[in-house]
Design a protein around this nucleic acid. Structure first.
Length: 572
DNA sequence: GCCGTTTTCGGCCCGACTGTTTTCAGTCG
């Protein structure tokens, strides 16, 4: 149970209360508590023990009691009770875009629908469209939403999957005879979505008694064996494929459990060409099994350099390895600048000073603060009259701190006509600007593309933020003509963001590589609303690496003077 | 449920869009 688990429980409680028709302000309080809890700095247990949690705004006695219960027993009685009272299908229905609590309740009460399957039936046979304030378009939209949910089912956002996998790995590493546990599969490849958790267990002996211990492992409710893997389903809902092995075969098993099918097929082809036999339990030269204790050893015998897990997608990495042209992928230590964060001036939870301190702790040389412009009213935004005050705070932080430079940035809205929010003189007061689309996604491909292209003509724009607006598992990217956007960005010297918010990871890694090939400079933006979200950068880095990016492709690898020169270059 | 007092209760964020309506409730960000 960490912060995000507890925050999820609180958010679930809020949704269930809403479905029951509770007092909206009580519901909002649980939602606020969930947000506040997710944003606290440091470890939850420590914050709870020290009493800091109770001091946090938005967290009161009721929340504290739930946190207490979750930390000691892993369960919440309130949540359990609510789940007994509300049909589970109703919470599934809430995840459909366009369906909120009021409509779900209306559907439930007037049509007695309480599962997705029944909802689908009601949408198809016309009952749904006949409800007051519903109609054919609503029914159609709901059918589309059900399809979307089905596709997404079983898929998890990378950071949720990672948290589950790490907890599982810790539990498994305590089993007798287990020496090491490694994350593998799409998680290790840093994919944006993860369906199955794959873990490799290096044990003293891979025998029946180990498998028996796995089956009896804490919380396992169902196990199955097949293809050398043990599938485990845990009480908490996580399902994982475990690959037990010994030290002698660890490299082989880890490599097989990590690469996608295309990567493995290409490796296999190359192994065959080199006279090797590829079997489930290892590589053979004649009848001789080769020792494969590390991935390096496997690549060695196939005659290739080690290939970073992020690249193992079958997108030309084998050819590049053969030619000695694998990229020198960007690493965390290459990053000098932390960009895209929000303070209390808009919808963030920390002050300028707190951000500066956090930036120092994370060894960044500079940190760009970028609050929302007024058009993003729902997020709370930095009003023009408050800009001088924020800038004085930044100047004070710079005067007081040593070792970090805080930059005056902004996340300005790209308005419907392609102009940027704020009057030009206000915008010029900022040292750099991220510009993003937050409203009117419904425009057609041509209109949206023209809107973004026009924004890039503005000389105060430095970076295009979350370019396609997608929300993983809930909203498709909007239909932007990326080729035209990349071409214009390269021509104008506008950088394009990899937004590292785990729900966005936008630009998609497949497009990152195209953008870099088109000559676009890429910027990794955390889009953090609290210092606890600084680690999002690691997810963004994973996407950059999947896009084959080297340090020279990235804007925030550059020293602060070069970063500012990049931002100023286009200004008159 | 939480906050902040006018300190033990009263107030709690809102504008735009959508698909319905024929004036607006519900959803979203």
């Amino acid at each position: 149970m960490d912060k995000s688990d507890v925050a999820r429980v609180l958010a679930q409680i809020a949704a269930l209360l809403e479905l029951k028709g509770e007092n909206p302000f009580r519901i909002r309080a649980y939602q606020a508590a969930a947000r506040a809890l997710a944003a606290i700095p440091g470890d939850l247990r420590a914050a709870h023990a020290s009493g800091a949690l109770g001091e946090t705004s938005g967290i009161g006695p009721a929340t504290l009691e739930i946190v207490d219960e979750l930390l000691t027993s892993g369960r919440s009685r309130m949540l359990d009770d609510l789940q007994d009272q509300v049909p589970p299908g109703l919470t599934d229905m809430l995840r459909i875009s366009g369906l909120g609590v009021a409509k779900v309740r209306q559907i439930h009460e007037s049509l007695h629908v309480d599962s997705l399957a029944e909802l689908e039936e009601a949408a198809r046979d016309g009952r749904l469209a006949r409800l007051p304030r519903f109609g054919p378009r609503t029914a159609e939209k709901i059918l589309k939403g059900i399809t979307f949910l089905r596709q997404a089912s079983g898929q998890r956002l990378a950071h949720h999957a990672r948290a589950e996998a790490v907890a599982l790995a810790q539990m498994l590493s305590r089993l007798t005879g287990v020496r090491e546990v490694h994350l593998a599969g799409s998680l290790r490849r840093h994919c944006e979505l993860v369906r199955d958790l794959d873990l490799v267990l290096v044990a003293e002996r891979d025998d029946e008694s180990l498998h028996a211990r796995l089956r009896e492992a804490a919380g396992a409710v169902e196990t199955a064996r097949g293809g050398g893997a043990v599938s485990l389903r845990l009480e908490a809902g996580a399902a994982a494929d475990l690959y037990p092995c010994t030290r002698d075969t660890a490299g082989w098993v880890l490599l097989r459990a990590t690469g996608n099918d295309a990567h493995l097929a290409a490796l296999r082809e190359r192994a065959a060409a080199g006279g090797l036999r590829w079997e489930d339990d290892g590589l053979y030269r004649g009848d001789q099994a080769l020792p494969l204790p590390s991935e390096q050893a496997v690549y060695d015998v196939i005659g290739l350099p080690w290939i970073a897990p992020e690249l193992r997608e079958g997108h030309g990495e084998i050819e590049a390895a053969v030619a000695g042209r694998l990229p020198r992928l960007v690493e965390r230590d290459d990053l000098r600048g932390f960009l895209h964060c929000h303070t209390g001036y808009s919808d963030g939870t920390n002050t300028v000073r707190e951000w500066a301190d956090a930036g120092i702790a994370q060894r960044y040389a500079y940190l760009g603060i970028t609050d929302h412009s007024p058009a993003t009213a729902f997020a709370g935004s930095l009003q023009p009259e408050h800009v001088p005050q924020q800038h004085r705070e930044i100047d004070a932080a710079n005067a007081a701190q040593s070792g970090i430079r805080v930059l005056k940035g902004v996340e300005a809205d790209i308005l419907e006509d392609g102009s940027l929010d704020y009057a030009p003189d206000v915008r010029r007061a900022f040292e750099f600007a991220i510009a993003s689309v937050h409203t009117r996604f419904g425009m057609d491909r041509h209109g949206l593309t023209e809107r973004v292209l026009r924004a890039m003509d503005d000389p105060t724009m430095t970076i295009l933020g979350h370019p396609t607006g997608r929300l993983l598992l809930s909203r498709d990217p909007f239909p932007l003509d990326l080729d035209r956007v990349f071409a214009r960005a390269a021509e104008r010297g506008v950088a394009i963001e990899i937004n590292a918010d785990p729900q966005r990871l936008d630009l998609d890694w497949r497009d990152v590589r195209r953008a870099a090939a088109a000559g676009v400079t890429i910027s990794i933006g955390a889009d953090a609303h609290g210092t606890a979200q600084m680690s999002h950068v690691d997810l963004g880095l994973g996407i950059a690496r999947k896009g084959w990016l080297e340090p020279q492709h990235l804007l925030n690898v550059r020293p602060v003077d070069e970063f500012l020169a990049f931002a100023r270059r286009r200004r008159p």
